[in-house]
Simulated assay, not measured.
Amino acid sequence: MLETPTGAGIRTEALTKVFKGAVAPAVDAVDLHVRPGEFMTLLGPSGSGKTTTLNMIAGFETVTSGRILLDDTDIARLPPYRRDLGMVFQSYALFPHMTAAENVAFPLRRRRVGKAEVARRVREALELVHLGEHGDRLPAQLSGGQQQRVALARAFVFSPRAMLLDEPLGALDKKLRESLQLEIARLHSELGITFVFVTHDQEEALALSDRIAVFRDGRIEQVGTPAELYETPVSRFVATFLGDSTVFAGTLRGGLLDTGTAQLHADGDDGGCALVVRPERMRLGAGGAGSNTLSATVTDVVYQGAFRRVLVAFDAGGTGQVRDTDGSAVAAGDRVEVSWPTTAGVVVADSTVAEPVPA
């Protein structure tokens, strides 16, 4: 079997990147701790700093200031080939004139591994990504998903201490992307090494990650497990970027949120804030004791198989959405009541900037 070391821990300390002529840092004093063997995802919109952070860890971008520790060794000034990190790109980056097996063998030959050992490792790596019978094919003879599997095999064949993956599924269609998500999760489990994965796809991040670091404007807004980020976001930015939400902004006093046009029950500290309610927690129909109820007009109903997404405009102002699994007979233009338990809403720090738009 392929020899895989125990996953290395990766830590950045005040990691900063300022591009020449830029007004603000692309990465601004980022402190990130990736635990040994962890699957950490860097998530955020375009321009948030996630890919630049990964490229500095990989050695493809120079560091303006700060440290990058692989376990206890500062690698910030080492060239990429001395960092012992595997890298997978969105574009596959395969050599078109080499077969799949030759592409996978390339990092081993660069390390002067013996011919017999190269053959053994390549064979095992291709088997691990279910391409054992395709080693003699050129990249042009492989599908996009197969090419990405070759790229994955090439990245782990030399037993790196961590794998860095830069939006590796971004060029694939939805069905193939979901299939390869399962493959990547399986590889992480079987290889036992640290994965750092960059994406702007929220569903992908939730499905794959042990923890997620949400990036915004070159900084980390929040780090946590998928459940922690979805259920208890710390800010309106995180809540609206990671999953769908209905948001009510206002001032909270004594358990009542004053939006200026409505009074809503909410649990949180007094002050300016935003109340976030996920669509699966909202219901069509008036709520009972311990609930909030608002009158609204249905603006659209979107069929999505297992549920329907009901979009509404509240009489008190603002819009929202309900994930309806009961098959309620509503259509655009209908008058409805929308309710949710007080405990279903999460009070977060408000933001004066526009809500994030996924890349």
Rank of each mutant, 00 (worst) to 15 (best):
G47L: 09
G47A: 09
G47R: 03
S48Q: 02
G49P: 06
G49D: 07
T51K: 07
T52M: 10
T52K: 11
T52A: 15
T52L: 12
L54G: 05
L54E: 06
L54V: 04
N55C: 03
N55W: 11
M56N: 05
A58V: 05
A58F: 14
A58L: 11
G59Y: 11
F60H: 10
F60C: 09
F60E: 08
F60S: 04
E61T: 00
E61K: 02
T64M: 13
T64K: 09
S65L: 04
G66H: 04
G66K: 00
G66Y: 14
R67Y: 07
I68K: 10
L69T: 00
L70C: 12
T73N: 12
D74V: 02
D74R: 01
D74H: 03
I75R: 08
I75M: 12
A76P: 10
R77K: 11
R77A: 15
R77D: 14
L78K: 13
L78A: 11
P79E: 06
Y81C: 07
Y81S: 09
Y81L: 06
Y81M: 02
R83M: 08
D84N: 15
D84Y: 13
D84R: 01
G86Y: 14
G86N: 09
V88Y: 12
Q90T: 00
Q90L: 04
Y92G: 05
A93V: 01
L94A: 04
F95N: 02
P96F: 04
H97R: 01
M98L: 15
T99E: 05
T99N: 05
A100R: 01
A100D: 12
A100Q: 05
E102M: 10
E102V: 03
N103T: 02
V104N: 08
A105S: 11
A105E: 14
P107R: 10
P107A: 11
L108G: 05
L108P: 02
L108Q: 02
L108R: 01
R111A: 15
R111N: 10
R111Y: 14
R112S: 13
R112L: 12
V113I: 15
G114E: 14
K115P: 14
E117N: 03
E117M: 09
V118N: 04
V118D: 03
R121I: 00
R121W: 13
E124C: 02
E124F: 09
A125D: 07
A125T: 00
L126S: 07
E127P: 13
L128I: 00
L128H: 07
V129G: 02
H130W: 13
H130R: 14
L131V: 02
L131S: 06
L131Y: 12
L131C: 08
G132I: 04
G132V: 03
H134P: 01
H134A: 14
H134L: 15
G135V: 02
D136K: 06
D136Q: 11
R137G: 10
L138A: 11
P139T: 01
A140D: 12
A140P: 07
Q141L: 13
Q141P: 08
G144L: 05
Q146T: 00
Q147E: 06
R149E: 06
R149W: 07
R149G: 05
V150R: 01
A151V: 01
A151D: 05
L152N: 01
L152M: 12
A153V: 00
R154M: 13
A155H: 06
F156G: 03
